[in-house]
Design a protein around this nucleic acid. Structure first.
Length: 571
DNA sequence: AGAAAAAGCGCC
DNA sequence: AAAGGGCGCTTTTTCT
């Protein structure tokens, strides 16, 4: 397991249920298969009791969902958990019941043959007071004891995992459950700790690009007002709204410039002085609207940006975020992410993760040899593309994403000849998708089945061009899914391994903590004297993740690591 | 009036 | 440089 590798003994389990209000709650020890190993215990101060059990027994905590059970206990740190809601979603997908409600109440209702409540819409920052931690978010029927439900649903989940017939697949799925649950711990912790954010640096950058902050909250900053005026003048002087696509298209058309859209790559190809102005306006307007002063006031106060992460929010297992756009911070704003005095940032990203995942998944001996190198694309180019790295990259990306357009045909033919196992792997995944089938990540995360609309479109007797297009689109999805989702498996295992290593480090009263995770990139905020140890832990965690997820493979998954004061200096 | 869709661009 | 899959967010436009 990523978070318990060192302990030979299986850790004990404890069900944990906080009271709906107040600091109390209940615990109950459980055996590995979920049967109670002792009576429930009441705790008047749940955080104290949990801390004591954590120190004495290092258990795996079993709870309905981290946001209701773990967030109220922070800053207490727990090593392991089994998150019932995330596990329910993984199991439902694996069992072909994708999309069924996954709350504790829904799982309990299925177990008892009761009507199954639909999942509530995800919470947002606005309903914090409205009861983010309220018990009704568990969707339990009135009168149900939540501890009974946690114990019963957990036992049922353990039974369902044990029922996976193939032993190797079962082991990998257990790893997936543990890693996803570790992600739940980490997401709550990162939201609590926040990413170091220098509002003064952010503010200076905005002022440099947009002009001074407008006195009125809704007002346009000076630079945008100027650009609007210049645009209007360049396009004949008639007023129009540069934020309205249709008005922009019309304004250009009036000058004899026909555009199919206002996309910036299309504008870039236009030979008209207004095009550059329009592109600049869009860039700055977007910065102002999405990451300007209003964003700062809402999300980055008190020296920390506190996003809300959604573990497993993307079907591939990648995380999503809710509010604040944590995973879409513009690169230019990275300079506002600065370590506290006496602290440093360790920033690491997995180099060329997806082609390496393909090499490991397909066990293509030739591709694996290139993926044993530091720069996979150069090695690939040397072997198969006469040293042309661009072509090698182009071809491999096209193969992984199902690209057919452009001059990519010959590149794909070369790849097919040199790396038949790798190309066969993605093409089989595509065929499965086109036929309406389901594919899985390395650890067993399932992709969604085709929708009813899709089936109508593609399986009708007269399924014509639209049906074919739709089938090919799903083929591209499943082709990419096996790689993206297996990459997410690896990244989750990396996180779990790194989190465990960081928990063992301290410098006085301070300790390093993860503060950012974005698909294949992690950031640790650490006391400066621990930075080298943190960097080493990143490397070790990458190796551990590779071994756990892909087993014995010659493929390497190197991380490029930078130790910096400012995120903007990381690469 | 409010919800939903569309367009467009940010990140991987 | 983009293509290709995945998202979130904001604004405008359209629908109910």
């Amino acid at each position: 397991m990523p978070d318990g590798e060192e302990s030979a003994a299986v850790p004990p389990r404890y069900a944990l249920v906080p009271d709906p209000h107040g600091p109390g709650g209940r615990l109950q020890p459980l055996a590995e298969d979920g049967t109670p190993a002792g009576p429930p215990v009441r705790a008047d101060r749940l955080a104290d009791s949990v801390a004591a059990v954590e120190a004495a027994e290092h258990p795996r905590w079993v709870w309905a969902a981290a946001d209701s059970a773990y967030a109220p206990l922070l800053p207490l740190r727990l090593a392991r958990c089994h998150d019932l809601r995330l596990t329910e979603a993984l199991l439902l997908g694996h069992e072909g019941r994708w999309g069924a409600p996954r709350s504790l109440g829904a799982a309990w209702a299925r177990l008892r043959g009761l009507p199954v409540p639909a999942d509530l819409p995800e919470s947002g920052p606005t309903d914090e007071q409205a009861g983010l931690f309220a018990p009704d978010r568990l969707q339990l029927a009135p009168g149900t004891d939540p501890l009974d439900a946690v114990v019963a649903v957990h036992a049922e989940q353990q039974r369902r995992v044990a029922a996976i017939a193939d032993e190797a697949a079962r082991g990998r799925f257990r790893l997936l459950v543990a890693a996803e649950s570790a992600g739940a711990l980490l997401a709550a912790e990162m939201a609590y700790d926040g990413l170091p954010w220098r509002s003064d640096v952010h503010d200076a950058l905005l002022t440099e690009l947009l002009g001074p902050r407008p006195a009125l909250p809704g007002a346009q900053p000076r630079r945008l007002v100027e650009l609007s005026a210049e645009l209007q003048q360049a396009l004949g002087g008639r007023p129009f709204n540069p934020d309205s696509h249709s008005q922009v298209l019309k304004a250009f058309a009036d000058q004899g410039v026909q555009l199919a859209s206002t996309r910036s790559w299309e504008l870039r190809a236009v030979d008209h002085p207004a095009a550059a102005l329009m592109i600049r306006y869009k860039e700055l307007s977007r910065l102002h609207a999405a990451h300007g002063w209003a964003w700062q006031g809402a999300w980055a106060r008190g020296g920390r940006f506190r996003p809300e992460y959604v573990v497993g929010g993307v079907v591939s297992g990648r995380w999503a975020s809710r509010g604040g756009g944590a995973l879409q911070i513009p690169r230019i704003l990275r300079r506002a992410v600065v370590a506290d005095p006496g602290w440093l940032l360790v920033v690491a990203d997995a180099a060329q993760l997806e082609p390496r995942v393909l090499a490991a998944l397909s066990q293509d001996a030739g591709l694996a040899r290139t993926a044993a190198e530091g720069d996979l694309y150069s090695a690939l180019a040397a072997t198969a593309f006469h040293g042309d790295r661009d072509k090698a990259k182009l071809g491999l990306l096209g193969a992984m994403y199902g690209q057919t357009s452009g001059d990519i045909g010959p590149l794909l033919a070369t790849l097919r000849r040199r790396y038949p196992a790798a190309m066969g792997y993605v093409e089989a995944a595509a065929r499965t998708g086109e036929d309406g089938g389901v594919v899985h990540s390395r650890l067993g995360r399932a992709c969604p089945p085709p929708s009813a609309d899709w089936l109508d479109l593609t399986e009708a007797a007269d399924a014509g061009e639209a049906g074919g297009r739709s089938a090919r689109a799903r083929g591209r999805f499943t082709r990419n899914f096996v790689i993206q989702a297996s990459g997410a498996d690896w990244a989750l295992a990396l996180l779990a391994a790194l989190r465990r290593r960081l928990a063992g480090m301290e410098s006085g009263a301070d300790r390093p903590h993860l503060v950012f995770f974005q698909h294949d990139e992690v950031m640790v905020h650490t006391p400066a004297d621990l930075a080298d140890r943190v960097a080493a832990a990143v490397t070790e965690s990458g190796e551990e993740a590779s071994r756990l997820v892909f087993g014995d493979t010659p493929v390497r998954f190197p991380l490029s690591t930078a130790v910096v004061e400012c995120y903007g200096d990381a690469k």
